[in-house]
Amino acid sequence: MNSETLELVRTEYEAGKIAFESGQYRQSVQHLQKASALVERTSSLGGDVQIWLVTAYEAAGQRAEAIALCNQLTHHPHLDTRKQGRRLLYILEAPRLNTRPEWLVQIPDLTALEESEANARQTSIPPAKSSKSQRPKAEVEPVDLSQVNTKDNRFIWLALIVTVLTLGSLLLMSR
Rank of each mutant, 00 (worst) to 15 (best):
Y90C: 07
P101E: 13
H75T: 11
E93Y: 01
E115V: 06
H78G: 00
E114D: 14
S36P: 02
N119P: 00
S36Y: 04
P95G: 06
A56E: 00
A56Y: 00
R41G: 07
L45M: 15
A112Q: 15
D152A: 10
P142N: 10
D48E: 15
L38G: 00
N153G: 07
L104R: 12
S116E: 15
S146V: 03
H76D: 01
E114Q: 13
L113C: 10
Q62L: 09
A138L: 15
N119H: 11
V148F: 08
I107H: 08
Q106S: 14
E58Q: 14
Q84K: 14
P126G: 05
T42L: 04
E40A: 09
E93P: 00
C70W: 00
A37V: 06
K129W: 09
H76V: 02
K137G: 07
R121Y: 06
P77C: 08
K132V: 12
K151D: 13
Q122Y: 10
P77R: 07
T42G: 14
P127A: 12
W52P: 00
R121F: 06
L73F: 06
Y57S: 03
E65F: 01
E102R: 06
E114F: 11
L89H: 04
S131R: 11
V140G: 02
L104M: 11
G61M: 07
E58P: 02
R87T: 11
P136Q: 14
I107Y: 07
L79I: 09
R96G: 03
E141V: 12
H75R: 12
K132A: 15
I67C: 02
S116Q: 15
Y90R: 13
E58W: 03
H76F: 04
N149M: 04
Q147K: 14
E102Q: 09
T111W: 04
V105H: 07
L69M: 07
Q50S: 15
C70P: 00
L73Y: 01
I125L: 14
A59T: 01
R121A: 14
G46T: 02
Q72A: 10
L38H: 06
T42V: 08
L97M: 12
A94K: 15
D109T: 04
N149H: 06
E40K: 10
T123D: 12
E141P: 05
R82A: 03
L89D: 00
L97V: 12
I107R: 09
L97R: 14
E139N: 11
S44Q: 10
N149P: 04
R96V: 13
L53Q: 01
N149V: 08
A118E: 13
A138V: 15
V39T: 10
E93K: 15
P142Y: 05
D109K: 08
E141N: 09
A66T: 05
D48S: 13
N71D: 10
